[in-house]
Every structure is written in C-alpha cells, then in structure tokens.
C-alpha cells in the first residue's frame, strides 16, 4: 500500500495488515474473557500447590475469610506462609448486595460476576480457550507464511545493538514519530515475540496439563510442569504475566498517541511525520 500525503508534513502509512488487525481484536476479547472466567474457576478452590497433588496443609498461595475476636469478618491471602490482610478484595468481598462473602477474587473481576459459578465459568473458559487457540493458529500461520514474524518481529543485529537506547527512550517516554515508527521498536519486537512464541504457548500447555484426558495422551506434559498442581500454579502465574503485559501494552498505546495507535490497529493506517530532507 502506498503512503498517502497529508498536509502539515504528515502522511498516512499502512502499518497493520488485515489479518493482524482482526486477530488482534479476537485475541483481546479472548484474553479478557479467559482471565475473568479463569479467576471464577480459581475461586472454586482458591489455593495453589506445587507437584502432582494438592498438599492441603501447605499451599503456596491461599485466600480465605475468617472472623476475628470482635466478630468482624476479614479476608486473608497467604503467600508462602505469610499472611496479608486483603479484606474487601481477596478472600472476603462484596456479593453485589452490600453483603461481604467469602470468595477468592472479587465480583468485579470474575466472569460471571456471581460466585460460585464454576460450571458457567468453565464453559466460558473453554469456549474462549478455543477462540484463542484457533485465532492464534491463524495469526501464527499467516504471519510465518507472509514473513511478518521473520521481517517484523525477529530483532535484527542492528536492533539488538540499540536495546540500551530503546530502554532509555521508553523511560523518557520518547517515541519515534517519523519513518522509524513504521516498524516495531526492538523492545516491542522482543516483547511481542516472547508473548506469542513462549508465554501464550506455555499458558495453553499448562492449561492442557490440567485435563486428565490430555495427561493420559501426553504424559510428558506432567513431567514438563512437574505435575498437575504445578501446572495449575504456572497457569495462574502466567495469567498475571499476561495481565502485566496487557497493562504495559495499553499504557504504551496511550502514551505514544492513543488515537493514531487505535486507528492503525483498526483501519491499518497510521499517521507519521514526514522525515525532513537531509
């Protein structure tokens, strides 16, 4: 696609192809629904363990509600044996009618919001897991075929030598405005590549390891994650890793020109500054 010149020393350049734009939004929908329905599922047993089985007396993490000497309810989150008062958010939170109830994650972040709704949470989770998988296969397949991965995501040697500079620019919130902004920056490349090639596949594998039928067919998964309960813990940790990625991603979108960024991931077209003639 050829560039379209605009007035005021700007031009529109075609930045994201159609398949990237479509899969990006299906991915966003799937990730949000997976995260929230996943926390609903977690609420059915808000404890995490390591190994093949649940060591109920020694969870890595647990959330619960209790009543103190003054008859006040409180929520506790225990991580590696250390207790934290998380009343109102984790362990004990509102059920929506002003009543405080025992539940792991609060209603504003679970899907459905009511709890316990394990059955519906599971059905939603597996539907969106299929959406994520099929969408991811379309993205990965097309991006390998049209060389989007090789051309735009794999950092070049030149990119790698500029990592330090890119970090400094990010800290100073200085983002490229001209020709340089046609392509991903090196930190962007590394992050996107890590997410699509490592983090999300690991997430899917850890999720599949919780399936007893898949375990029977692919016992190496149990070895890979050191057991079903550790796979559940890994799945949980990666969920929050992806949440962290998404929040930084959105922060970067906002800081580097939200309207232009949104236009380019919706229509494909991005407005950049014409580089001044040397």
């Amino acid at each position: 696609m050829t560039d379209i010149s605009l007035s005021g020393g700007r031009k529109l350049v075609y930045r994201h192809r159609l398949v990237v734009r479509i899969t990006h939004w299906f991915n966003a929908l799937a990730i949000v629904c997976l995260f929230m329905s996943g926390l609903q599922i977690f609420n059915a047993h808000p404890e995490l363990y390591w190994g093949p089985k649940s060591t109920f007396d020694h969870p890595i993490l647990s959330m619960s509600a209790d009543t103190d000497d003054d008859n006040n309810d409180y929520g506790t989150t225990t991580i590696f044996g250390h207790d934290f008062d998380t009343t109102g958010v984790l362990g004990l939170s509102s059920n929506g009618n002003g009543q405080m109830v025992e539940r792991g994650f609060p209603r504003w972040i679970t899907l459905p919001s009511a709890s316990p709704e394990l059955a519906v949470g599971r059905r939603l989770h597996f539907f969106f897991a299929w959406m994520l998988t099929i969408n991811g296969l379309i993205y990965m397949g097309s991006s390998l075929l049209n060389r989007h991965v090789q051309r735009d995501l794999v950092p070049t040697k030149q990119d790698l030598s500029a990592v330090g500079k890119d970090i400094v620019n990010h800290i100073r919130l200085r983002f490229p405005r001209g020709e340089e902004s046609r392509k991903y920056g090196v930190l962007q490349k590394i992050t996107y590549l890590a997410v699509v090639a490592v983090i999300v596949p690991l997430m899917i594998l850890a999720g599949l390891t919780m399936s007893p039928r898949v375990d029977a067919g692919f016992p190496f998964l149990l070895t890979l994650f050191d057991g079903r309960q550790s796979a559940r813990t890994v799945h949980f940790v990666i969920a929050f890793t992806i949440l962290g990625f998404s929040m930084i991603h959105i922060a970067m979108v906002v800081l580097s020109g939200p309207i232009n960024n949104l236009r380019s991931i919706v229509t494909g077209w991005s407005s950049i500054e014409e580089d001044k003639a040397p």
Partner: peptide, 28 residues
Amino acid sequence: MNVIDSAEALSRSVQRAITGSRPVAREY
C-alpha cells in the same frame, strides 16, 4: 450459552482424536 457450549463437543472430539480411544492415565 448455546454458542458457548459448542466448545464442549469440540474439546471432546479433538481430545479423543489426539489421545486415542484407549488412553491410560499416569500411575504413581
């Protein structure tokens, strides 16, 4: 929810197809 529940049949048939008809769970 009918749309959502279409995933169950997909999970069942794909899991059957990839794990065979006589899968054996790990024994400890």
